Simulated assay, not measured.
Amino acid sequence: MTPVELSRTVLRAVRRAVDEGELSVAVPQRAVVVPPGPGGCGDYATNIALQLAGAAGQPPRRVAEILQQHLARTDGVADVVVTGPGFINISLQGANAAALTREILRDGTAYGHSDALTGEVVELRIPYDVRAEVVADALVRIVGSQGGRVEVDHREPVNLRPVPAPDDPALLGPDAARWALLHPAAHDRPRITADHLVQRESNPLFRVRYAHARTRALSRNAADLGFTPEPGDVQEDMAALLAVLADHPRVLARAAAQRTPDSLARHLVTVADAVLAVLPVVLPRGDEKPSAAHRARLALAEAAGAVLAGGLSLLGIDAPQHL
């Protein structure tokens, strides 16, 4: 369930509570769902109860408890917990392989995008520094993927000041330079070294781009063998990949809400490692004929490729078809 779908689920819970006479409020047009803040839990949280409490004439926590009962009975929701004055924290059930794969292939590189931040304007005041510029540029796209808008300005007081690079990153070339500046957390000093250029597994950027290129190669090889992807059930050896793909919308939402493009970069490394671990079993071996299992694995691999390409694009980094 994506943030957009969860937002609609929350609104349906409000509507049911109104229809059953538990709440007397106008159903809002949207419900904001974001990663939980300090003291929260689960995958997402919403402050809809605090928003409705005044009109309902009830304490926010009571409104949250009413909605909690409706949300807990919703397909795809594993648990609902009320915290603080009335924040609703929602944990989602594990992803169904076929449904998740179909959703990603439908959305392509826009998988995980939502309207959770629609109407929100983020003001970034940054110093004249190359790393700050690159981080702000990535945040323009990441926040935009959640429906928000970023305005960047160079004035005091600054509110985004990542640790500057010790050397000129331009010597690494555009893609490696951006990765070197975006992959570390803002409070960590980036390494501007040739390690970002080596074509081996020790280089996280190489693993991410290589994993994407391999998914594209699998599609070409499958076409040569005469079969196409078809979402379906996959075996336990795909569980880790399935889990990280299902987590992608939450990671994107958190990166936008917390202004942390580094969390997206690290997530892409996790996705790449999960992809590379299963690629050897995607295509038939030897005289083996393509089966429904092969088609389902191929579909999941293509979905992973879309997630990698979409994530790299948000960071401003190219996702090559061949590597």
Rank of each mutant, 00 (worst) to 15 (best):
S291N: 10
S263Q: 12
A26T: 11
D167R: 15
N47H: 15
G226V: 06
E65L: 12
A304S: 10
V18T: 09
V18Y: 07
G119R: 04
V10L: 12
A45C: 12
A194S: 13
P261A: 03
G54P: 13
P290G: 08
T101C: 07
A110F: 11
A296P: 05
L50T: 08
V32F: 08
P169Q: 02
D19K: 11
V77G: 02
V18Q: 06
G84I: 07
R266N: 13
V80C: 02
P231W: 04
P3F: 01
L323F: 10
R285H: 15
L314H: 02
I88V: 09
A53T: 05
L71R: 04
G310D: 03
E103C: 09
L181P: 02
A98H: 03
V143N: 01
G54Y: 12
V234M: 06
A56R: 00
D75G: 15
I317M: 07
P280I: 05
T109I: 12
L52E: 06
R141F: 09
G42S: 09
N203P: 10
A319L: 04
Y111R: 05
R295V: 09
P38Q: 10
I88S: 00
T9G: 13
T260R: 06
F227I: 10
A292S: 11
I104E: 01
L279I: 13
V271G: 03
T215C: 08
D137A: 15
R189Y: 08
F87Y: 06
V198G: 11
P60K: 01
G39P: 09
R178Y: 04
Q199G: 12
V143F: 01
E120N: 13
A213S: 06
V152Q: 08
Q199S: 15
T74C: 09
R131A: 00
G94A: 11
L225K: 12
E65S: 10
G147I: 03
P190K: 00
L225R: 11
R125Y: 06
L279F: 09
A64G: 08
A55L: 14
A97W: 00
E5M: 10
G310P: 02
W179L: 05
